[in-house]
Nucleic acid binder design. Structure first.
Length: 289
DNA sequence: AACCAGGGAAGAT
DNA sequence: ATCTTCCATGGT
């Protein structure tokens, strides 16, 4: 058993991060005690790591705890990368003071981009959630994991690509996947098993390369690539202009009668480069509850 | 009952 | 290249 503490350089709203993570019923956490359990897939082993907030948004301190005594450094690095503790959110806040989002950034300070726990898991979740309302989206992604994944210490590990590649479309139709969605999920997993898609490699390429390569797979369009780059890779400058949530938020703040178009949104978002991901997160946040 | 949902493919212009 | 239409399924 080991426990390690870490101080983030700027502000960091861990409680909001927990709230976002809590949208996913598969993630085990406690808002009151301020911890979340992160399933970590290692080379040949796996473990569950507890991450806990010990400080405040202004003076953020975190603890990372695990009973997996080997590979402590690897595990800690992984956690630090997932939560992006080294990204100085004070700098981001400063940047947005000169934009029309300054009021929102004042109201919602220290909103981090918390990465999904696993590259493949993230891609499957994004595909499954396409075009579905949040409630039903989580219903079927939870079914998917609880049917084909594995539980350990109360936390769920997504099924591996090998496991999903061997499924039949009807296995997912039984979970109320549409035929299309079943095909997207299984076919993409097969490409990953075949080596045709390498998510680790993709995660290190520039955005445009990822759009070209990942976007070729059937069922993976611009929205899915954007979300994967944003939430799986944790990149700073993604803005899903076609996203219905983003459009609803801008409709509200700009007091429009109808949702703005993708083109209108993209044009305005140029002013938020190179930190458009934080604009997106803060806009989503602003219309939650 | 009608419209929507944190899309995408396939077909039509 | 850009626009429509269809797909598919539950939520409000």
């Amino acid at each position: 058993m080991w426990k390690e503490y870490y101080h983030a350089p700027g502000m960091y709203d861990f409680d909001y991060a927990l709230k976002r993570l809590g949208m996913d019923p598969l993630i085990r956490l406690d808002m009151k005690e301020r911890w979340v359990d992160v399933p970590v897939q290692l080379e040949n082993d796996r473990t569950v790591v507890r991450v806990k907030a010990e400080g405040t948004t202004e003076k953020p301190v975190f603890s990372v705890m695990s009973d997996h005594d080997e590979e402590q450094d690897v595990i800690f690095e992984h956690i630090r990368n997932i939560f992006q503790w080294d990204k100085d959110l004070n700098e981001i806040h400063q940047f947005f003071q000169q934009t029309e989002l300054s009021m929102l950034f004042h109201q919602y300070q220290g909103t981090p981009v918390v990465r999904d726990f696993h590259l493949y898991q993230s891609l499957m979740k994004v595909i499954i959630h396409q075009q579905l309302n949040m409630k039903f989206a989580y219903t079927i992604s939870t079914r998917f994991v609880q049917t084909f994944g594995e539980e350990e210490d109360g936390s769920w590990f997504y099924p591996t690509p090998d496991k999903v590649a061997q499924l039949e479309y009807d296995d997912l139709r039984n979970l109320q996947f549409s035929q299309r969605k079943a095909e997207y999920v299984i076919d993409t997993s097969r490409k990953i098993v075949d080596g045709e898609l390498n998510l680790q490699k993709l995660s290190k390429l520039p955005n445009e390369e990822v759009f070209k390569t990942l976007g070729k797979a059937r069922g993976i369009g611009p929205w899915t690539v954007e979300n994967w780059l944003l939430f799986a890779c944790g990149r700073d400058d993604l803005f899903p202009a076609a996203d219905i949530g983003i459009q609803n938020a801008l409709k509200k703040w700009w007091q429009l009668d109808a949702k703005p178009t993708k083109v209108e949104v993209e044009k305005k978002a140029k002013e938020w480069e190179p930190y458009r991901s934080f604009a997106a997160l803060t806009l989503w946040r602003s219309i939650e509850d």
